[in-house]
Every structure is written in C-alpha cells, then in structure tokens.
Simulated scan of single mutants.
Amino acid sequence: LLLREPMLARAAVKFARGVFCPNDGTGDAARYTAAALEQAVQRGVRAHFGERVRGFDVIGKAISGVKTDKGHYKADAVVVAAGLSSRQLLASLGDSLPIFPVTGYSISYRGERAARPSVGAVSIPHKIAWAAFGEETVRFTGFADIGVPGPAKIAARFRALEAFAHDVYPEIRGDAPAKWVGQRPMTPDNLPFLGASRHANLWLNCGHGAMGWTMACGSARIVSDLVLGREPAIDLEPFRWDRYGLLGRRGRAVASDRIAVT
C-alpha cells in the first residue's frame, strides 16, 4: 500500500489493507467541462448563460420550443440535462420524476507542496475520498446527507473532513481550504433517466447522482445517437422515465398472487 501511495507513510490514520484499481482515474470535472464547452463552441455550438428556462411549447406529442426569461427558441429536439432542476422542468409538462437531493461536501487545499497524493483514493469506513488535481490542488470529498441540511450539520461535516484531511495529509495543517457543498441528483434505484420521454422529441439525461461526470461522455453519446435516429450502444430499458410506474404495477400483481396462494 505504501509503495502505491508513499504519502500514507506520514499519515496518522493507519490502513491495514487496500484495493488498487489500475484502470481507475481522477480529474477536475470543472476544468474538463470548460474545455469541452470551448471545443463545442469552436464547432458551432451557441451557449447561453444567465438564462432561466420557464417552460416548453407543446404541439401534440412533441416539443416545438423552449421559453426562457430572456427569449424563445424553436426546437427540433430538446435534451433535459439539468441535474436536480430536471424534476421541476419536467413537472411543467405533467411528468413526475423521482430525483432527490443528496448533499455532499468537499474541501480543496491549494499550493505547491513537497509531497502530494500520487493516486486518487477512498476510505470506505470514513466515507471520504481524496485526490490531487494538477500540481497545486488536493481535494477531500465525502458524506451523503439526504435532503438539504441546516448550517449546524454542514459545519459538522466540514469539521470532520478537515480533521480527516489533517490526519491523512499532515502537509496541509494550518492551511485554510476552499469549501464546497452541493446536492447530488439521486434516484431511488441509483440509475439515471436516460433516453426517450413521453414526448416524441424530448430526451432525458438526468438523475446521475454522484456519478454525473463519470457517466457524462457515455450518456451524451447515447442521447446523440437517439436524436440522430441511431441505435444506442446499450439497452436503455433500465433507464426508462416511467420505470417506477411499471415497478409499482408489478409489485401489486405479486402481492395479489401471494394472497391467492395463501
């Protein structure tokens, strides 16, 4: 373990064993997203920021346009990929998708140091992960609180993160980290809503929980294929928008069968 991560030799937390995943990796999702957007703009994409979607124009079973607080856009196809806000947007169309907030936290220490993490890692008992981003940033992240906690809970989580960070990475003691708290868009079965919706040209790419960036490229490829009329690379049945309704009916049928047998 220490050969893979020499930084742990100075840690106050002593790990008995670990699992090394050579194909795993870490990265800065914000930097990646900014670079991807830059590439998209160079290819002709027009990005509109500071604009809030107010609703959709519907003709029959199709979406004909998107209304915002600054304008109106006609559309041949619409993709809803708005994280937690996807639920509110789709509710305006009469759909109810179970996407719920689960709060997570991170602290980031910036500055050059002699020693830094060489691999991304996670401590399962502590529910905390850490990784180095570039040469100057080390981030610790963790926890999962259902809903949106109050200030006392948030403060306690950050204290726990900082205490663990000091124990694992003593080099950052005395440094003040940048703090972040946000809500993961979770579904009850931990699978996203991906693919078709109730409307003919409205596509879903939401509810990815804590795995949004991990699933981003694959999900985008699937939605792109669907918009262009191509066969997606995977079976999308587990990611259907109406799967909870189907499971509910199935559950009642099973219960009825059991009563009959009894």
Rank of each mutant, 00 (worst) to 15 (best):
P232V: 08
A75W: 06
F164Y: 15
R116H: 10
A36T: 11
A47H: 10
V227G: 06
C21Q: 11
R139P: 01
E5S: 08
G245N: 04
Y169Q: 03
V181S: 09
Y109I: 12
T137V: 14
P125W: 09
K74H: 12
G44Y: 13
I146Y: 06
G25W: 15
A196I: 01
Y32G: 03
F158G: 06
Y73T: 11
S224A: 15
R243T: 08
A11Y: 04
A210F: 13
F49N: 02
A115T: 10
S108Y: 01
R240V: 00
S86R: 04
V148A: 02
G60D: 07
V13T: 15
V80K: 06
L8C: 09
R258L: 15
K74S: 12
S118W: 04
E38Y: 02
A9Q: 12
Y32M: 11
A30G: 01
W213R: 02
S224R: 09
R258S: 03
F100P: 00
V223K: 01
A144K: 07
G71D: 05
M186S: 14
D242H: 05
L226T: 02
G207D: 04
R116G: 03
R250Q: 13
T262S: 11
E38H: 14
G218V: 01
S224F: 00
S224L: 00
S256E: 15
A115L: 06
R173W: 02
A163G: 00
P149A: 05
A255I: 04
D76S: 14
F15M: 09
L93N: 13
D57W: 05
A253N: 05
I234M: 13
S123Q: 02
F143Q: 05
T187F: 05
E162F: 00
S64C: 01
S85R: 12
P170R: 06
S106V: 07
R4E: 13
I234V: 15
H126P: 00
G245Y: 02
